[in-house]
Write a protein that binds this DNA or RNA. Structure first.
Lengths: 156, 156
DNA sequence: TTAAATGCAAACGCTTTGCAATTGA
DNA sequence: TCAATTGCAAAGCGTTTGCATTTAA
């Protein structure tokens, strides 16, 4: 899997990326390659800090600010999606993996993906009743996962 | 309306509050009174900064840290509810007003309350399909409100 | 009297920014 | 070549904390 929705390996991936960058007069750099690789490797979501940690291992002098700047570029180019789950948790996703939501466990922190379709009913309701166009690409639902909800007092 | 779900005015309000505080060996202070007043005055939600701004007007030397500390106490006592909407927006609510959700407009920032019942179907689905106990007391849904969604390109 | 609460200043964690040096096209 | 990109250090933001002082009970 790669950021452009193809199944090809490295070289093509890079070419495609160069293309996209070129369109905007932007450049490919080793840092960007590694950041993109980290996002692709992540299964659906990853935070800036995790990306940084991964990249630093192989490229010890990257700076966290480069990670943030690259993330901004990728988002602007539509290659990654950003989700603010609240509680200081911001996650990035390969765009080609489609939109999805997150069930975040308060207990163990685990994030489970939830297909977009699961919320289509809600989206319709909000539009009809409130005239509110919900952007359900960016949503986190907090609670307790299957593993943790046995040990926790449940209300609400 | 007051934090304890009664319709009485100031004096009783204070008495009741003293009681609650007393139970835990805590004290009533002018700062706490004003902070509580600000939350009650807010119609359903208010941020720490807004509380601070309001209180400073009448009590110029309060400190923002006192606001946060009081908010913690109130939350612990079950008098206010805290919701992290993401994007650095944390809102506090008088607890007696019941649980509700928030439709947050990306364009104008407006927050619309949404009744808890509106999401009960979703909650059921998540429990059945994912064994996930969703805490829908704390949720923000981002998108575009009725006023703004006319001027904005809509996808998803 | 005395523990709780406050103001202040400093630190926090995450993110952003200014700038001079570096580097890809 | 030369603008885009980087690393670095500093700042920004909302929030938290340590501590000496004040204050409610």
């Amino acid at each position: 899997m790669n950021l452009f929705g193809r199944k090809s390996k490295q070289p093509d991936n890079q070419n495609r990326m160069n293309e996209e960058l070129g369109k905007k007069g932007l450049r490919m750099t080793p840092q960007r390659l590694m950041i993109i690789a980290a996002i692709e490797k992540s299964d659906n979501h990853i935070g800036a800090d995790e990306i940084y940690t991964q990249v630093v291992e192989k490229y010890p002098n990257v700076n966290i600010s480069t990670v943030y700047r690259t993330l901004d570029v990728l988002e602007e180019m539509g290659m990654v999606t950003k989700t603010d789950l609240g509680g200081g948790r911001v996650q990035y996703h390969p765009a080609e993996k489609g939109h999805h939501h997150h069930l975040v466990c308060r207990e163990c922190g685990k994030i489970t993906d939830l297909d977009e379709a699961a919320l289509s009913v809600l989206k319709e309701t909000l539009l009809r009743h409130y005239n509110f166009v919900a952007d359900l690409r960016h949503m986190g639902i907090w609670g307790y996962c299957a593993k943790c909800n046995r040990q926790v007092v449940k209300e609400a």
